[in-house]
Design a protein around this nucleic acid. Structure first.
Length: 579
DNA sequence: GCCGTTTTCGGCCCGACTGTTTTCAGTCG
């Protein structure tokens, strides 16, 4: 199988790590990291570029040298430089670089003084009191290293976005109570609405002498204070979540918000642009020489370098700055653009509420239609519907629709895609429905080829409308299935069917970059709640957040269509000879 | 190692916090 961009990126990161341990030129190291970042986010595979005869040095941050290394990696799975570097260090030593508090200098020192070459060895050395014998290390460092090594061995964890909401609410309340505090904003990846967050970055606007830092450090949910200064503090909450807080004055609010919202790559690019215009951007403002020319609002910071304000969800240095320059930023979808929801369950399968209760909840959520898509028969743990029970539900929906006002229930099913790609109910039964949502719930560990073929085959069935939660990942439970998503997107385009962005907090599936690929390919996305009770409809907002990260506009999303136009789009997928 | 209405050479984002090196290097975000 061909080598993927993410694998090339990982090799460049490894080269960068090993070069750092060799104390190589820091800018050379950075060049590898820049290229790795570009590769990891690039929508087209370099293997395809190679097949098309395209030059790798067309990639930003990739010159002749790195282009040659990409070609070498594609050809033989590695490159001479990586092989040489690996040979000169013990395997696994780069793990040490990913332990909090350790950088290349300290790892170098620990390796040469104590022969430490793994996190486990580091932990024992710290517990035996040997770290403090190394010049530059003391008892405090040793204690911190022991803790960080233990944490690393337990594996650093990222939090699903929705799971940090209780902590966010508590922190906002805590900090708003401080006299003089005028703004409290959670910035960082939380504000960019990434599907997971590693920590919380909180920006507080307050006078220089405010008690905000002390308030956070003394907050009753704080387990440990990592750092405490006059304008910054870092703490770990009792639930393990790290919180970094910065205090700025109102005049710097905009520049601080840009800076702490990130991403790192985005802000670095902004500063490079500023530098080229003889300006300097930092968290306190935008400066020409010693004169401060902007910084009170985010818009003023972007305007100072000739750009419109870029929505936080796009700030990943994935082309949004170039798009802003060309005045070609997308007009991102909003929750209010959704007219309905195309994936919901009732108590007929594993939902908790009746048809009528779900209809009322959907109307209360401002929706005009709700597709009822209970599970199919093979998902026995969810009391999946067979043909007879589905028929009963179809009749019940028809009767209920006659009585309902301001909301229409659509007749659907979340039909299992069987391991061989067949659907779990006969075509004649599915043909009675308004839409068919197909989903994989079993045999999740097939090979990439088999899993992809299974889904392509299912899409070819005459009544297939929407592929539900395409990657099948569940945070904390299982990773995404091995899939050729580019092929699935192309096939959906050819077949005229749709991909779901499942809004459940533990799914958020399609991923952001895949949404963008689908959009670029002209495949519409259904943003669906997968609600199992009425209150779950609130998850649609999370799906919209992720869709915005995928650059989706209202026109890219199937369920922004009003009912009549939606019916037409769906009907095209439901006719036996479609595609 | 990359890159150029600053430059084909000489730059490369910027500031806060920590521990320990009594003046700053290392790390982090």
């Amino acid at each position: 199988m061909s080598i993927r961009n993410t694998e090339i990126a990982a090799m460049f990161e490894e080269i960068a790590d090993l070069l750092e341990l060799q104390q190589a030129n820091a800018f050379r190291v950075r060049a590898y990291r820049n290229a790795a970042r570009t590769l990891a986010a690039w929508p087209e595979e370099m293997a395809d570029w190679a097949a098309q005869g395209r030059d790798f040095d067309d990639l930003p941050g990739v010159g002749k040298d790195l282009a040659g290394k990409i070609a070498e990696i594609l050809a033989r799975g590695s490159c001479d430089q990586l092989d040489r570097l690996r040979a000169s260090f013990p395997r696994g030593i780069t793990d040490l670089l990913h332990i909090s508090g350790l950088g290349p200098r300290r790892v170098h020192a620990l390796y040469h003084e104590l022969g430490i070459r793994s996190p486990a060895q580091l932990l024992s050395a710290a517990r035996e009191g040997r770290i403090r014998t190394v010049p530059g290390f003391g008892a405090v460092s040793e204690r911190r290293i022991a803790k960080a090594a233990a944490d690393h061995l337990e594996r650093a964890k990222r939090w699903p976005l929705a799971r940090v909401t209780p902590s966010v609410d508590a922190l906002l309340a805590c900090l708003h109570a401080v006299p003089g505090v005028s703004e409290v904003v959670v910035a960082g990846s939380f504000r960019r609405r990434r599907d997971t967050v590693g920590d919380l970055d909180i920006l507080v606007v307050a006078p220089a002498d405010s008690a905000a830092v002390r308030q956070l450090c003394e907050f009753d949910q704080v387990e440990q204070v990592l750092a405490q200064g006059s304008t910054r503090a870092s703490v770990v909450l009792k639930n393990g979540l790290q919180v970094d807080m910065r205090v700025v004055r109102a005049a710097s609010f905009g520049s601080a918000l840009v800076y702490f919202t990130g991403s790192r790559a985005h802000t670095i690019t902004l500063r490079r642009i500023a530098q080229a215009q003889k300006l300097k951007i930092n968290e306190y403002g935008v400066y020409r020489g010693r004169i401060r020319i902007a910084g009170d609002t985010e818009a003023s910071v972007y305007a100072s370098i000739g750009l419109p304000c870029i929505p936080p969800e796009l700030r990943e240095d994935h082309g949004e700055i170039e798009a802003a320059r060309r005045k070609a930023l997308p007009r991102l979808i909003e929750r209010a653009d959704l007219c309905g929801d195309l994936h919901a369950h009732t108590d007929a399968s594993d939902g908790r509420e009746s048809l009528q209760q779900m209809a009322q909840a959907a109307r209360a959520a401002g929706l005009k239609y709700l597709a009822i898509t209970d599970h199919s028969r093979s998902l026995t743990v969810a009391h999946g519907l067979d043909a007879r029970r589905l028929g009963v539900q179809i009749d019940a929906i028809d009767r209920l629709n006659e009585k309902l006002k301001d909301i229409v229930l659509l007749k659907g099913i979340e039909v299992d895609i069987l391991p061989d790609g067949r659907l779990d109910l006969p075509d004649a039964v599915l043909a009675r429905l308004d839409l068919v949502v197909g989903a994989v719930h079993s045999s999740l560990d097939l090979s990439r080829e088999k899993q992809t073929a299974r889904i392509l085959h299912a899409m070819d069935r005459p009544n297939f409308s929407i592929l539900a939660h395409p990657n099948g990942r569940l945070f904390g439970t299982r990773g995404p299935c091995a899939l050729d998503m580019e092929r699935i997107i192309r096939h959906a385009r050819e077949r005229g069917c749709f991909l779901e962005l499942n809004s459940q907090p533990d799914r958020l599936d399609l991923f952001d970059l895949q949404c963008r690929q689908a959009r670029d390919a002209g495949v519409a996305i259904a943003i669906s709640s997968d609600a199992h009770q009425g209150t779950d409809l609130r998850w649609l907002a999370l799906g919209v957040d992720q869709a915005r990260r995928g650059w989706l506009e209202a026109g890219d999303v199937l369920n922004t269509l009003p009912l009549q136009r939606l019916r037409k789009r769906l009907a095209a997928t439901m006719s036996p000879m479609s595609g």
